[in-house]
Design a binder for these strands. Sequence first.
DNA 1: CATGAATGAGCATTCATTCAT
DNA 2: TATGAATGAATGCTCATTCAT
Lengths: 217, 217, 217, 217
Amino acid sequence: MNTPHSKDQEPKRSPGRPKRLEQDAPMNELILQTASRLFMEYGYEPVSLQQIAKVCGVTKASIYYHFINKSQLFTAAVTSMMGMARSSSLRIMQQEDLPLYDRLVTLAEVKLRFPHGDFETIMREAGGSLSQDQREEIRLSEEKIHDILVDAFRTGIDKGEIRHVQPLLMAHTLASMLMLGNREISKDFGTSPADLAREIIDMFWNGVSVGAKVSQS
Amino acid sequence: MNTPHSKDQEPKRSPGRPKRLEQDAPMNELILQTASRLFMEYGYEPVSLQQIAKVCGVTKASIYYHFINKSQLFTAAVTSMMGMARSSSLRIMQQEDLPLYDRLVTLAEVKLRFPHGDFETIMREAGGSLSQDQREEIRLSEEKIHDILVDAFRTGIDKGEIRHVQPLLMAHTLASMLMLGNREISKDFGTSPADLAREIIDMFWNGVSVGAKVSQS
Amino acid sequence: MNTPHSKDQEPKRSPGRPKRLEQDAPMNELILQTASRLFMEYGYEPVSLQQIAKVCGVTKASIYYHFINKSQLFTAAVTSMMGMARSSSLRIMQQEDLPLYDRLVTLAEVKLRFPHGDFETIMREAGGSLSQDQREEIRLSEEKIHDILVDAFRTGIDKGEIRHVQPLLMAHTLASMLMLGNREISKDFGTSPADLAREIIDMFWNGVSVGAKVSQS
Amino acid sequence: MNTPHSKDQEPKRSPGRPKRLEQDAPMNELILQTASRLFMEYGYEPVSLQQIAKVCGVTKASIYYHFINKSQLFTAAVTSMMGMARSSSLRIMQQEDLPLYDRLVTLAEVKLRFPHGDFETIMREAGGSLSQDQREEIRLSEEKIHDILVDAFRTGIDKGEIRHVQPLLMAHTLASMLMLGNREISKDFGTSPADLAREIIDMFWNGVSVGAKVSQS
DNA sequence: CATGAATGAGCATTCATTCAT
DNA sequence: TATGAATGAATGCTCATTCAT
């Protein structure tokens, strides 16, 4: 249930510093993670600090202790998430013993498992509420992810493995294609994420047209 | 205008039904179009009825005369837009004298020129505010668009023109790829929409890998 | 009682436009008057819109229908009040058949009856929340009041009635002296406002020192 | 500092009692002085404990170690300041070898140099937040200042130096007139504080009307 | 058809205050 | 002594919605 009306009797935490016996992640990061998840799922405006606070089991005011305001929390959440996505992508793409194709499949599989709205769309929605600097910061952290793909594609072109298409265009195209995981119908395809990843990369690699190519898996 | 404290001295429209000049579409549709544009650009929550009303040059209350509430307006706006997109797509895809590839390029070109957020993301954002029926209605109108592509792809498969991939998956993949037009970097590619359309369809059709194929344009 | 906890059963007004049979002042002005009174009594920050709304018998949102925000309401309230004070002062000072001294007594009497905080202090308190323009606007409306006194004093000097002191300084001095009416101890003086007015103007006119003058009343 | 999200890299003070260098006043008094200054400049509500803490270079919690709450801090700050003002005034007025007029000029000069809002107005603003006892305490400390003037005036009357006006009324009137130093326009008078002091006391002493008196400086 | 004037619910934000360390 | 991490209550403001005109 989402309704705030339900008077669920969670034990109200009393004010003052909480006894820090707990070795679980510091509030700081719990909030960041929760915020990331909610923002990427529902966008900026629809997610209220109240909501984030509730999920974290703290009060709104507590969030304001850790973050200046909503837009900064958003920025922090999104860039932190981007950072993790980047390392994950990097780890995959750096396995240079594997063929590019296979690395792309692994990458796709990982991305397909993490559901989130289209980043561009979310940014456009949040845009009005962010400062110029914040937009810049986020944009930068996003670019760093694309850079990984761009590099891989450039190398692929140099090695004669892939065609001579603008690497950045390819990167964005692939990113767009991987948004498929978020479409509700993705379940209707009846395939596991692993299979879906394979199919998408196959399309990306070979195109849809009938040709002389051999499916490479 | 609703707020009397607005300092702008726009000529106060007098109450009562305004004489309908032949050229202006009925309020009904003006609102619908305006709403479509704004919703697709910024999402559901960030767009206020006030905003829509202002753009249309009427009051909020006036919108409530034509539509029962925000969610219904959203539903109506989106489905109406989908309807138009459908006819447009249909017109293009029905030119069966042209090769599929060329029709896809034309289609892409049209879609790239109309900027809008990712539909799935917007729906997820609006989701919480829509009724089950409304979600259903929108989903249906969206499907009808995909159906056009699905049909085309199925025919393509039958004719041996394209590979044996799930048509629905292809349709969604293409739709995803066409979201590229909305990405800010799309301008950085230095190409016109027409060129971009060509490049995207080329990737969709031939894939990125090096092969024996000949670019078909 | 001031406590918002008291669940007093005032008849909740239902939404929508109220039946306007009432010939009492339009909300617009009721709010302005109420706000004036409260702001001048307690200052800017301590007066909440909630409070103003409650006194007016409407909701906060209703205030926002008539005024853009708190600072604008403050500005409007204060300048409107200043305007009224100005006409009142003007009416008194224009009775040029009466001697200046007598006119000042009348003026003092009126001001002493209207209790309010020191304007300068209130402005300093509100200052941080007002825009440059708003401060300017208020300052201007205040100046117009002082101008009336300044003119009167200038004429008095020309006629050889009063000494050659900077008129503006005299005006501000008199204004300061009239703040006495607000001091709680003013009641302790055991005199009626009329008597107090007389005594203050006597001091202003003749000073405290022993001299050859004859008290002029 | 309290908020960890503040980007300023001031050297974090380590917890525990800081070695008390001889030159800095005990925290206690630093807070008191800072609070006095801010409260008298901006009033009660607009000054937050956060703000005071920041200026003092300590945390909010630290203030709560020294003072039980805001209203008590206010009371303490104001009465302490009053105490200092009292001694200062006393020192000046006790120089009984000087004529009363000259002592008043000196007093005026001192007060004009210390800018602060009208005390009465500030009290009215803070009023709602103070306990009865606190109001009493402040009122008392204020009275003690007026008493000095009252005594001086009473003596002046006895000596036949000044007219037979209620001494308390004179005291308050003078206090009101000295508020002029805080008015922004006081600079426009083009005179130094010393000159302004002289002019004000002259008005207070001789009044504005033309008479047989000789300016006494 | 369309407006003007209102409401109630919610949101971001701030503030005084508390308490374990 | 002083801090770090929290709370609850309040505030300014916006928004969807309602209803008499």
